[in-house]
Amino acid sequence: MSRLEIENLRVQFMSRSGPVPALRGVNLSVDGGRVGIVGESGSGKSTMGRAIMGLLPLTAQVSASRFRFADVDLLAASAAKKRALRGRRIGLIMQDPRYALNPVMTAGAQIAECFRLHHGLVCRAAKSRALDLLAAVRINDPETAYDQYPHQLSGGMGQRVMIAIALAGEPELLIADEPTSALDASVRTSFLGLLDQIIRERGMSLILISHDLNLVANFCDRVVVLYGGQVMEECTATDLAAPHHAYTRALAACRPSLTERLPELRTFTRDPAWLEAQP
């Protein structure tokens, strides 16, 4: 199993009014299993995923004392080396299939393209592998779906096509950035079941990025809570039932519940000390 090791990762975006820090010294190590990254918007969770994929814009400055995936130093790697990593060894599932899929290519062609690029397969072999993969992500009629354009697919099906694309390179690490936020509650359950099955069958590591504490607690082994570009808390998913950090506790408490009806939802004020507590 390939290890992802991140120590003291800092990312800042250069802007006209000076540098804007997005990540301020984050540590993360993934070696098999499922890691969840939770945080609100602006906490830096997507920046983290993009930094690992090497997909940050040119205005980003990345520094770290250690930033490696398997035998590749992600800080020093050339563009070509990073490209060889993307899709092939690290896969990415993005948030919304409506925006992430290419609207002028059929679903099948987009999957077959991965097989052509990563495995050097020719058209017909690529197509048959793509059809297998569509069946593996539980699309009922792969032949029909293969020739459909993204706008003809439902949200749940689009998201399955996205998994298929991510799986085509047979990556060792899968990064899923809010994979279910565009899906309905009932579709979400079946989607997560599928993701769970695929990860177990293929022995991949998973980084699940989400704003939903509940979802991550149920699905992952380990959870990292981000706030303002810093790790507030890292714990096992079972420990999340009784979190240590005030921020995690507050975040868990403000969700409406289906078991009791409070007169008001709980809110919290952000303590500036949360951002200074870490070195």
Binding site: E40, D212, R255, E264
Partner: peptide
């Protein structure tokens, strides 16, 4: 919106 912001807006509306 985030859950924390959602709670504020919901309380406000109610």
């Amino acid at each position: 919106l985030d859950v924390s912001i959602q709670a504020e807006i919901v309380n406000l509306v109610m």
